[in-house]
Design a protein around this nucleic acid. Structure first.
Length: 419
RNA sequence: GCGAGCGUAGCCAAGAGGCCUAAGGCGCCUGUCUGUGGCACAGGAGAUCACGGGUUCGAAUCCCGUCGCUCGCCCCA
């Protein structure tokens, strides 16, 4: 038998309410901040991600689904949400729109990883991007949006971590300093950290190994090596967050695994953090548009994993509303009744209400059971007697009461309710 | 990519070499109730015991491999 590919999952009907819930909250919030939706293709030219995410990153080096299509083009299944939005910004000349341009998206994301709790090969993200405004007030707005999204979902036991990793000017100097600090302590470092030293020095700070952690505590901090403008940006961001009553913690070890970030980076995590705990992560990427061939254009955004959000909703016992059942189930007894039931169900739907046509192959008892199991509030009963009199029995399942009405009256009241 | 645990019907599971033509529960279907749900009782359907190979007179049970899931690392949402 076939199974869904490793690291992928079917989202079954009974799970959809979580996805629907998150989407409706996220859309409402994004729209209230003036964001417009964008949908980009599931696959892109492979080069887009190599250039934006960065050649040395894990994502590009070993996690991308890249293949040659039948025409010989090298394409990649989207491994993250930001680069395609930036590509679209450039492709559609959005710099001619009033700046900044605010966009949000929902999309599947693909990374060839080893699956475990909260980590998949295909997952889904909600994300936002703001392009064309370098002001720290925008950083604060984006972070506030992320923070308020979590709260509107009912996730309140969460923490916000922020850091600044400097810009293209100051970062190389900081990285050099970091390297020399770690090089002096090379003997005490774990194997991974030794290779990180050359490959991705910023990640040294994030090592979980006990020894390296200790070394990281006293390592040079990026915020102490900011150029004057980045420092100003950093300080303003913090004062803005405070002004909006958003509690945050500065985490000097917070770095992110994508090369395009500059200045502000942030993450939101649940308090009882497990391994794959980050439910929202983002940052500023002022050099990215230029990197992709555009004019220098600042940008900032975040991504949030829908599967991880769902996991946390379940863990925290947040009540998510069920998707409503249709109001009516049309039960029928006898071959003649089937035709009339079909017609009645159709007319109910045309009047704008929901109806399920019961398979009349079972006894009425079985049809009632089905209505009960499906949570249908009203059962309409059609048998030979009702049909010959042009009537229908309307049973209210919650109160176990029922009345007989004429079909035309019933449909008329349905239509007037619909308007 | 590395380390550890697990894999018995749609779901939860008993089972530890022969008494397994695999217990029980949930769910599903039917009946008790000739046209009326939720409760109860009775019955029924549903499993090549993840897959492949091996050991043995005999394997769900032991061994090996593969696949999948879970947990940790790495990395990230």
């Amino acid at each position: 038998m076939y199974q869904a590919p490793r690291g992928t999952a079917d989202l079954l009907p009974e799970e959809q309410k979580y996805r629907r819930y998150i989407e409706s909250k996220a859309v409402a919030l994004a729209r209230s901040y003036g964001y417009g939706r964008i949908d980009s293709p599931v696959f892109e030219d492979a080069g887009l991600f190599v250039r934006s995410v960065g050649e040395g990153t894990d994502i590009v080096e070993k996690e991308m689904y890249t293949f040659e299509d039948r025409g010989g083009d090298l394409v990649t299944l989207r491994p993250e949400g930001t680069a395609p939005v930036c590509r679209a910004y450039l492709e559609h000349g959005m710099h001619n729109l009033p700046q900044p341009v605010r966009m949000y998206y929902f999309c599947p994301v693909f990374r060839y990883e080893r699956p475990q709790a909260g980590r998949f090969r295909q997952h889904h993200q909600f994300g936002v991007e703001v392009l064309g405004d370098a002001n720290p007030a925008v950083d604060a707005e984006v972070i506030e949006l992320a923070w308020r999204l979590m709260h509107s979902l009912g996730l309140t036991d969460i923490e916000l971590f922020i850091n600044s990793i400097g810009d293209g000017e100051s970062r190389p100097q900081y990285i050099e300093e970091l390297k020399s600090y770690y090089t002096q302590r090379l003997a005490a470092l774990c194997q991974d950290c030794r290779s990180r030293l050359e490959r991705n020095p910023l990640r040294l700070l994030d090592c979980k190994v006990e020894n390296c952690r200790g070394i990281g505590e006293t390592a040079p901090r990026s915020v102490d090596h900011l150029d004057p403008e980045s420092l100003d940006h950093w300080e303003k961001l913090q004062s803005y967050l405070s002004a909006m009553d958003i509690p945050y913690q500065v985490d000097h070890r917070l770095v992110r695994g994508l090369d395009y970030y500059s200045r502000t980076v942030f993450e939101i995590q649940p308090l009882d953090a497990g391994a794959q705990s980050t439910i929202c992560g983002g940052g500023r990427y002022d050099g990215l548009i230029e990197q992709l061939g555009g004019r220098p254009t600042p940008g900032i955004g975040f991504g949030s994993g829908l599967e991880r959000l769902t996991l946390n909703l379940k863990r925290s016992g947040v009540e998510v509303p069920d998707e409503p059942s249709p109001s009516y189930l049309v039960a029928n007894v006898g071959d003649d009744a089937r035709l009339h039931a079909l017609e009645l169900a159709s007319r109910i739907r045309r009047a704008g209400a929901g109806a399920i046509l019961s398979s009349g192959s079972r006894a009425l008892r079985g049809q009632m059971r089905q209505a009960n199991a499906l949570g249908i509030p009203y059962v309409l009963i059609l048998g030979d007697d009702e049909i010959s009199r042009g009537e229908v029995v309307i049973r209210d399942m919650a109160t176990s009461t029922q009345e007989t009405a004429s079909l035309t009256d019933f449909l008329r009241s349905l239509e007037s309710n619909g308007q």
